[in-house]
Design a protein around this nucleic acid. Sequence first.
DNA 1: CTAGGACTTCGAGTACACTCGAGGTCAAGA
DNA 2: TCTTGACCTCGAGTGTACTCGAAGTCCTAG
Lengths: 148, 148
Amino acid sequence: MKIGEVARRCGVSASALRYYEQERLIPPVPRRGGRREFDDRSVTAVAVVQLARRAGFSIGETRQLVGEFGRNRWRRLASRKLDEVRETAVRLQEMTRLLEKLLDCDCPDLDFCGRVIRKRSNLEKGDPKERRPARGRSAAFTREEASR
Amino acid sequence: MKIGEVARRCGVSASALRYYEQERLIPPVPRRGGRREFDDRSVTAVAVVQLARRAGFSIGETRQLVGEFGRNRWRRLASRKLDEVRETAVRLQEMTRLLEKLLDCDCPDLDFCGRVIRKRSNLEKGDPKERRPARGRSAAFTREEASR
DNA sequence: CTAGGACTTCGAGTACACTCGAGGTCAAGA
DNA sequence: TCTTGACCTCGAGTGTACTCGAAGTCCTAG
């Protein structure tokens, strides 16, 4: 199967597929006459990568994931990522609830609404050090990211 | 309140705060002797931005969000974002279930596991066009992103 | 008065995840 | 045979969200 068909079937661009190969997310794809010829193995590898990418794993995380295939660490990585996303979802729900409340109460302006927000949120009052989680790299993967 | 204290209290760097001002996520902060002097208004604005950023809104989305403050569109944007994150969480859970299954069944290698994945996943069989959601910009905000 | 630290602007640099363009190759159909 | 389209590599470019460094300013303590 040539790269174009794989791209169409997997919903990913051909250049992304080349990039995945280059970044070793998938094993080297065999060539025929200079062109990539995807066999079942390769297509499977792409499917695995797609699954991981859609689940929110970064390129580096995905590389580590496929490298750890079948070992216990994999599960740990996955469940940690799940926790991360759940936390994001929780924060978003809090945000949404807050927004809905504000919209309901017909605040006159941002300044007023802001005062409401400051009352309800725990920003700017607690532990003024050691903050900012979930931005940037995820804690679960920093070791491997550093070593490339 | 000077920028350093705001940074410490809100768990964001001073340079990020300058960046937020420059990107109009927060209104211009008043100066005194050339230095930013954050009043309640400004600190509130930062709190709002932090809330949005932690909930997963991008810079562009956050700008639009604070611009739409108090109007109905805001709620629509927020609930759409919630849907997005929920979808991500669902995909991740699917992924995790799949991984757990594979780990449980002690597959001998990636190739074998891959065949299992290909059986269970709906990748590479359905609608070979119109895919790739949730990667790149979110559909909810593309209009404003285009117009900058 | 002077040293130090926190602040200022500005431009450049960074990481991620691709994407694009140039310049060339290969294979199938008219 | 020729053309067309899909493919190749390589290097550069893109957008996001900052971060960093240089060079200079301001305020406070000693």
